[in-house]
Write a protein that binds this DNA or RNA. Structure first.
Lengths: 107, 107
DNA sequence: ACAACAGTTAAGTATTTGCTTAACTAAAAA
DNA sequence: TTTTTAGTTAAGCAAATACTTAACTGTTGT
């Protein structure tokens, strides 16, 4: 009941470069499918399927308007990724410098 | 020559939960394969294959000692992930609170 | 009513993935 | 030297992925 269930895994959702690119696009704000698809050399159904995966991982939400579907970024699940990766932060150090600079600029 | 080349992709390497768990283990320090494999209900070859993937993604390095192979964490490639996910940081806010607390504790 | 448009769903396919068991290589112990 | 021990490599397989084209649903415009 807990094993590989529904599988709306964030990590697998962001494993695909096309899906990451879609998320990057959506940082500019919500967009209809056709506009999302435009920069990709790929059929519309392919994009639609990627959007489904992102939807199941809750990384995007849908809004229906007329015959258009606007997709909007929902970055909250990425917190999971951020939290995980931050466990490794201490190892590469640079992050701490960034914080140091912040403190310098604000002291 | 640039498309889906060698495919030593960090994002796909960390997409698998077993591989993430292995990396988590290795945060405690380098370990031989048998010890790495122990907590998993999976054959040794399966673990060996996961280690290969992590190796190709440069997330671990190998050290040979006698008949043992010690694997050691190399978290640098995770910076890629951290950098990407940090583009989304502004959206979920909590990170800023953490920084806020830090500043409070050190003012 | 009907054609065009926006998008999804269905069906099929080639490739990749995550495992298995069996066979192998190399070092240590007997 | 023979036998464990540690681990990788090979071969095979079922399931998942990332696409494709074709068929469908629903909305808008004529």
């Amino acid at each position: 009941m807990s094993k590989t269930a529904g599988n709306a895994n964030v990590f697998t959702a962001i494993a695909d470069p096309t899906r990451r690119a879609i998320l990057d696009l959506l940082r500019q704000g919500e967009q209809p499918v056709k506009q999302i698809a435009q920069p990709f050399e790929m059929s519309l159904p392919a994009i639609s399927q990627h959007l489904s995966v992102l939807c199941e991982a809750k990384l995007v939400t849908q809004r229906k308007e007329g015959r258009q579907r606007f997709y909007r970024l929902n970055p909250e699940p990425l917190k999971q990724v951020s939290d995980w990766v931050n466990h490794y932060e201490q190892f590469w150090q640079e992050k701490l410098d960034v914080l140091g600079n912040y403190l310098e600029d604000n002291s």
